[in-house]
Amino acid sequence: MTISTDPQTTAGARERLLDAAEALIYADGIHATGVDAIVRLSGTARKSFYTHFESKDALIAAALERRDERWMNWFIAGTEQRGRTPRTRLLGMFDVLREWFASDNFHGCAFLNASGEIATADDPIRVVAREHKERLLDFVRSVCDEYAASGGVSGRGAARLSRQWLILIDGAIGVALVSGEPDAALDARAAAEQLLDAASASVATRSHTRREST
């Protein structure tokens, strides 16, 4: 069997198309990015595009799936490096975000950006974006569960805290994008710290009340 070594027909062409699509849609948006621009930046032939993807939307969904994996790995690793306790890891998430906000290639959340351009809820691109947020929430929830186990918040409150945390994360991303201020992450961190303090105070109050009633 003869295996083609033509770069236009190997897996390398697919990866270059994904790289180009991700870079262009993240910087310029989905609707502003055409197939010709993606093919041109990738250095592949237009025929190669149709060999690997049935449509532009299919390419973009695949590019976002790959970005989700890379972004989550980066965010989880950065969070775990920020502290040994659940509280320091939760707050450290915003320090990780600030580094991203201060980088030259920050253009907001690719998944929120994509959702803003795609109106149909069951569109594959929207599905990938929704799954990314669900995955992010799952990770945040896992740290909130650890925080609950340490006594910092009630087990019942861990789910609510994780949802609030996701809102703070996405809110910080949006503010940083519009304002150009990386310190939006620090403002979100300060609000997050107040959430933790309030949750801890609530746990302490309930514990004190139970002791008095016995």
Rank of each mutant, 00 (worst) to 15 (best):
M1Y: 07
T5Y: 07
D6W: 01
D6Q: 03
D6C: 02
D6N: 13
P7H: 02
P7S: 06
Q8P: 00
Q8H: 12
T10G: 09
E15C: 00
D19L: 04
A20F: 07
V35A: 14
D36C: 00
R40I: 00
A45S: 15
A45H: 09
R46W: 01
H52M: 00
S55D: 06
R66W: 01
R67L: 10
W71I: 12
M72T: 12
T79V: 12
Q81N: 10
R82E: 15
T88W: 00
L91Q: 10
M93A: 09
F94K: 10
E99F: 01
H107D: 09
I118F: 01
D122E: 12
R126E: 02
R126P: 01
V128N: 03
R130S: 12
K133N: 11
D138S: 14
C144V: 05
D145W: 00
E146D: 15
A149C: 00
A149I: 04
G155R: 14
G155M: 06
G157A: 14
A158S: 15
R160M: 10
S162K: 09
W165K: 00
G171P: 12
I173T: 13
A176K: 08
S179D: 13
E181I: 06
D183T: 15
A185K: 08
L186Q: 15
A188P: 10
E193T: 13
A198C: 05
S202D: 15
T205Y: 11
H208W: 10
E212C: 07
S213N: 11
S213E: 14
S213G: 02
T214C: 07
